[in-house]
């Protein structure tokens, strides 16, 4: 008898539970905010991340590059910071700023900025590789040879050209 009761109870419970709300509320569709594919597809048409038109900051990048070559690195950095304010998710800008810091011998900052650049470079393996190479050099300069080797491995993973 206990056997029957148990399974009857189980059957009824299953019926009940199928409409039960004591489970964690997951009947609402989970919002897809994690971008796995590496594509830039947003989930909705409104409030998409701003279109990153490279022309807008191209002039600033060129200016910064020239200034860094002529030794005016501080000014080059200021211009790149301005470009980053306009396009914060542009990995090229962060990479360029990392290069300027490297020129200024600020190796820790150069490394951090290159890592930051990588955050936005999921679709740009070239930039990721360039970042890892920069990190390799920066770590070498601070005497972190082990770290430099690890960084070099990361760069090599992304192909050698």
């Amino acid at each position: 008898m206990n056997f029957v009761v148990k399974y009857l109870f189980l059957f009824l419970s299953l019926l009940l539970l199928s409409s039960c709300s004591s489970l964690p509320k997951t009947d609402a569709p989970v919002v897809d905010i994690v971008d796995k594919s590496g594509s830039s597809a947003g989930t909705t048409t409104s409030h998409k991340p701003a279109v990153s038109n490279p022309i807008v900051v191209a002039g600033l990048q060129k200016q910064a590059k020239q200034l860094n070559h002529t030794g005016e690195s501080a000014k080059a950095a200021a211009i790149l910071e301005r470009a980053i304010r306009i396009q914060p998710r542009n990995p090229g800008l962060w990479h360029q700023l990392a290069q300027v810091r490297f020129t200024q011998k600020q190796y820790r900052q150069a490394e951090s900025l290159a890592l930051r650049s990588n955050q936005y470079a999921s679709r740009a393996p070239d930039i990721r590789r360039a970042n890892w190479l920069l990190i390799t050099s920066a770590r070498a300069e601070t005497g972190d040879s082990k770290g430099a080797r690890e960084a070099r491995k990361q760069a090599d993973k992304l192909g050698s050209r």
Partner: peptide
Amino acid sequence: NAQSLQLDLL
């Protein structure tokens, strides 16, 4: 004009 949060899988 806030932009929607988007998390890139690393």
